[in-house]
């Protein structure tokens, strides 16, 4: 049985704290991984990583750094029942898209990430994926950034379809967008 939960939210929405509590509550005695995607640069980035590490400390996560090629995260996990929290799609997408001088095409980035997560999910009893709402500031950016926003939208849409549950975190409050109904069969 493989379950997947997609957790969405904006900057400072409390989505990380919610996701960590969420996976901690469901993982029981199974091995619990934290798949970190951030490529750390600059003092702001280091601060953010530190804040997240502090939030996670004592919660029993084994951290795997996987800023690119997300499907490979499974190669570094032990065998047996395990759960993972993947944080977050916005970094992963930016890394995949902008690691080379010429940005990778949005369709390719979308396809690779969705495929990678689909494969990763099969290795786990429960995968929790954190993604961001980057869609509502009403600004028009340069072509690269607009392509990134479209890729994020596509990926979110496809992950939501793949997920059993989708939760948006708003000011720290979970708003359920998709839910497993009582009596639903979770096995696909």
């Amino acid at each position: 049985m493989t379950m997947m939960t997609l957790i969405l939210g904006g900057s400072g929405s409390g989505k990380s704290a919610y996701a960590e509590d969420y996976i901690t509550a469901l993982s029981g005695n199974t091995r619990k991984y934290y798949i970190a995607t951030m490529q750390v640069s600059g003092p702001g980035g280091r601060e953010k990583v530190k804040r997240h590490q502090k939030l996670r400390s004592g919660k029993g996560f084994v951290t795997i750094e996987q800023p690119l090629a997300i499907h490979r995260a499974a190669d570094r996990m032990d065998t047996g029942a395990k759960t993972a929290l993947l944080e977050c799609i916005s970094n992963l997408t930016a890394n995949e898209m902008f690691s080379n001088e010429t940005p990778k095409k949005e369709e390719l980035v979308t396809a690779e990430i969705v495929k990678g997560i689909t494969a990763l999910k099969e290795e786990l009893t429960h995968l929790v994926v954190v993604s961001n709402n980057v869609f509502e500031d009403g600004r028009v950016y340069d072509d690269r950034t607009m392509a990134y926003i479209r890729a994020m939208g596509q990926i979110n849409e496809r992950l939501a379809a793949l997920a059993d549950e989708v939760v948006e975190v708003v000011v720290g409050i979970p708003v359920i967008l998709k839910q497993v109904e009582a009596g639903d069969c979770w096995v696909r």
Binding site: G10, G44, N133, V134
Partner: peptide, 14 residues
């Protein structure tokens, strides 16, 4: 709600 956008480059805005 001001967090639902692209994370700005400027540190003060972030």
């Amino acid at each position: 709600e001001i967090g639902n956008g692209i994370v700005p480059v400027e540190a003060a805005e972030r």
